[in-house]
Write a protein that binds this DNA or RNA. Sequence first.
DNA 1: TCCTGGGATTGAAACGATTCAACCCCTGGG
DNA 2: CCCAGGGGTTGAATCGTTTCAATCCCAGGA
Lengths: 331, 331
Amino acid sequence: MTTIRDVARRAGVSPATVSYVLNNPGLVRPETRERVLRAIAELGYHPHAGARQLKRRRTDTVGLILPTGERRLSDPFFLELIHALGDACAVHQLDLLIATCRNPVADLRLIDRLYKGRRVDGFLLIDLQRQDPRIPHLQAAGIPFVAFGRIEEDGTFPWVDVDGTAGIREAVAYLVGKGHRRIAYLSPPLSLTFAHHRFQGYRAGLADAGLPFDETLVRTTRPTMEAGYEAARALLAEGIPFTALIAATDLMALGAMRALHEAGRTPGRDVAVVGFDDIPMAAQAHPPLTTLRQPMDQIGEALIRTWLAAVNGETPPPTLIRPILIQRESA
Amino acid sequence: MTTIRDVARRAGVSPATVSYVLNNPGLVRPETRERVLRAIAELGYHPHAGARQLKRRRTDTVGLILPTGERRLSDPFFLELIHALGDACAVHQLDLLIATCRNPVADLRLIDRLYKGRRVDGFLLIDLQRQDPRIPHLQAAGIPFVAFGRIEEDGTFPWVDVDGTAGIREAVAYLVGKGHRRIAYLSPPLSLTFAHHRFQGYRAGLADAGLPFDETLVRTTRPTMEAGYEAARALLAEGIPFTALIAATDLMALGAMRALHEAGRTPGRDVAVVGFDDIPMAAQAHPPLTTLRQPMDQIGEALIRTWLAAVNGETPPPTLIRPILIQRESA
DNA sequence: TCCTGGGATTGAAACGATTCAACCCCTGGG
DNA sequence: CCCAGGGGTTGAATCGTTTCAATCCCAGGA
């Protein structure tokens, strides 16, 4: 293994100078810097991460915990999120450490192990719950973190979120504009914060249009394709009339479309369907799904930027990102 | 931050003893060990990862590179793979570091940075190509790695793979058993090793049944839902007769089913459809998709076990895992 | 000519663990 | 009674960086 001493020897300087070239280039005379950089390139030198961490008390690593038990996230949306986070990390020269955890309680122990053992500088929280035990734990321990999602309007911790309320509200307005009056709504459990916010958007949208809120049109169930299918089927079986349907996630919308097909009602023609997320599959659905796109690159970048600020001891402002209505044939 | 010295002081022993308790418990007298463990618990001590890495020349971290440019993997299958890898890592007390990379050439630089900078002990290679530049690079540099997928039957590096040949062969036999004689086949580019192997299975299956190989029944295209849709559509448009269709990935199968629906041919009734992977969505397709399941937990565990062996300087034998035919209504 | 000051460079002390070699103490055999 | 030997424990060196404080050198002002 080549170390900073090898580079120093080759460039005819001291290890300290090499370190300055790497971390504080302004301090070094240009000719010297040149010489050192050449030596680094020739030797293919890469500083030892562990040694740097030890001395700088920084790991430049973002921790992401992926629930994997029954709370397992198998919505393709999360694969896109991981991609976006990876890209944003690369831009900021950070690494992304992924840990999986089978149950929420063990989460806390895992958090401690990773942070106190200085494997990561802080965390990204996903799959936020309304009463999330991780938040007080992190706050009490003084561990930096950023949540993807929010609990209430702002609150006491840094977060980045997509404005589900505005998104769904816009979707309702869009459907109302097309003449729909009875709009069904499929929601995951409201204990998931994003579900709560999107549902607010549904109600606000109805209110905007002066439409009554009819609770028989709303179904709350798991955020999976299967659950969306079942919910839509139930709606149809009960003979509840509706001409449009909004699902809080694309996966649920896809499930609902299947139910509609089976009932002989063609989505996009007989019933308008709108989803949320714009997973890659949405564009290829049958028919292509109108949906609210979560701008992944922007989300990844905002999360990482906010995370960096939090890790640097700042208290970064929350970021609310507006989803984009993508019009396709399903509505 | 609490260090090993704090623990030592509290337990009334030397730091060395604390270290032995953690790494070599047999050396320490039970009473002493007890005392040290109590001190560790009371102080909430976690060894500093960077310091350990520095001394032990081990990071206990698995590197996974996720292509994110045009080669981006957005098949939900990879989310399942990440979950499985995370779980397997947890079992073996390893961490999983995910780096994304926009293009294959930069891959090599990224590999060097992560390995020479000792951020990871070795790599997991996914999305293996037939001529994969990463393999010779890793081998030349002596960097430990395990590939998910294989080039040829065995070869010169450690790998874990699912036996696509056997899987598709079984699928063909299954369809033939149901009376099908003209079986279409949708394949990703054969430069992807898994596509190559699965295609072999198709040919072998036909040969087993004494059926002729008809190249008009085979379509090679991208492994996406959209491409599957287009390919199946083309097949139908050209009026090529077939009563069954095998797609090399579930996503392609899902696309093909859409094309069949549109053409008024109900999958499962008019045309049998079989996929590969068993992504969560397969069970919820319309109709539920018959497919070859990749046993994810087994794959994750095998990959990590093999990786550990490779990192320890062994030359672990390859592992070939048999996929499982899941019969559903599409065939 | 001498002195001052500032830019460039360097030596050495950490950072927090692991592990070798040395040490201590005690038991059991000669 | 002495000594060998072994189990348990410890001191100290070490891993590869960063960074403070000290040093060196040279230009420019008095």
